[in-house]
């Protein structure tokens, strides 16, 4: 809900989510080999995610004067690529649950899941190319350039995180974390969808500067990711991934970076030992201890407060970015999506 108490986000998430699913369905093959490729490939996209990324793309296009249909294929491409990366993330993170069900590699084994993820990533190019075809060639090339740019940054961000996990003794600062989030999360979650939407917009002739939406998408995406990290520690099964999965994985979150700088003596030794262990050797007592230390020290509260500040910066950037854009439900949706982040519990 916005300041007026009206939910401006959910209706458009549902409307644009349905539009994206319909577009996506046309690009998910229904032919053989089904059992070992196309059925697993279509699993995550049909599990019912939040559809925030495609909705952001369509809403931005609409805010810039396009009809929702004009951006549907690009939105489908974004959602397909997102799901492809989730398949790979789940393998790399050794996650067991995704959106309340077993992860794809738990259901089918890593080789089949890996191949399905590869295929889904490649398939995501098709709707994007089809959408790009309706643009003037210079804008279409710029759009495809941006897709390559986004994919490269996503891989770089993931590499940073995987590198930290492979080297548990390396010191990670908050700015290191934010740089990782900017690349791994913000580009695909917010920057790219907004940029593509603006390129598909009619009112601006598809013209988008090299750095447009990066600051807005960074603050928004970081707020979203940090809040996601906080939710992961809330416990219970309301959250799609397994509860406290980030702690089991010793994932470098703001809370972990915070607590790492505070512990001393035997606590620090226990922490270092925990970080150095492979995931399967970590025990529940250590995870519960670490969670308690984060709660007691206020690390979780500080991270939550920081994410709110980042959301505030995102809204500030929104005000500057959309100052000249006429009012519309889509413009309102984009602004309120930032604060919607803090209302979700999944």
């Amino acid at each position: 809900m916005n300041a007026s108490g009206i939910d401006t986000v959910t209706p458009l998430l549902e409307e644009y989510g349905a539009l994206t699913r319909a577009a996506m369905d046309a690009y998910l093959p229904k032919r053989e080999p089904r059992a070992y490729l196309y059925d697993p490939l279509a699993d995550y996209p049909t599990r019912g995610g939040k559809m925030m990324r495609p909705a952001l793309c369509i809403a931005t296009a609409c805010a810039f004067g396009a009809a929702p249909d004009r951006a549907a294929k690009a939105a489908a491409a974004i959602e397909m690529l997102h799901n492809a990366l989730l398949i790979h993330d789940d393998i790399e993170d050794e996650s067991e649950e995704r959106r309340g069900k077993p992860t794809l590699h738990m259901l089918h084994g890593t080789p089949i899941a890996l191949n399905a993820g590869d295929a889904l990533a490649m398939l995501s190019l098709r709707p994007m190319l089809d959408n790009a075809r309706m643009l003037p060639p210079p804008v279409a090339l710029n759009l495809l350039h941006d897709m390559e740019r986004m994919a490269r940054f996503s891989a770089e961000g993931q590499a940073m995180e995987l590198g930290w996990r492979a080297n548990p003794d390396v010191s990670v600062t908050r700015n290191d974390y934010l740089q990782m989030v900017l690349k791994k999360t913000c580009w695909l979650a917010a920057i790219f969808p907004c940029r593509v939407g603006a390129m598909l917009g009619k009112a601006n002739g598809g013209q988008v500067t090299q750095d447009a939406f990066i600051r807005f998408g960074y603050f928004f995406g970081a707020a979203f990711q940090i809040h996601d990290d906080v939710l992961n520690l809330k416990g219970g099964k309301v959250y799609g991934k397994e509860s406290c999965g980030d702690l089991w994985e010793a994932k470098r979150t703001l809370m972990l970076i915070d607590i790492a700088g505070q512990l001393t003596g035997t606590d620090k030794a226990r922490f270092d030992r925990f970080m150095a262990q492979p995931r399967e050797e970590r025990d529940q007592a250590d995870v519960e201890w670490l969670l308690a230390r984060m709660q007691d020290s206020g690390a979780i509260d500080r991270a939550f407060t920081f994410s709110q500040s980042m959301a505030g910066a995102a809204i500030h950037e929104f005000g500057r970015l959309f100052e000249a854009v006429p009012d519309s439900r889509d413009k309102t949706f984009i602004r309120d999506l930032v604060t919607w982040t803090f209302r979700r519990d999944h």
Binding site: A3, A311, G312, I315, G319, R320, E323, R335, V338, T339
Partner: peptide, 15 residues
């Protein structure tokens, strides 16, 4: 179509 009130619920200022 000038500056829009951001009116966000975090109370962190506006455009």
């Amino acid at each position: 179509w000038g500056a829009q009130p951001t009116g966000h619920p975090l109370g962190l200022g506006g455009a």
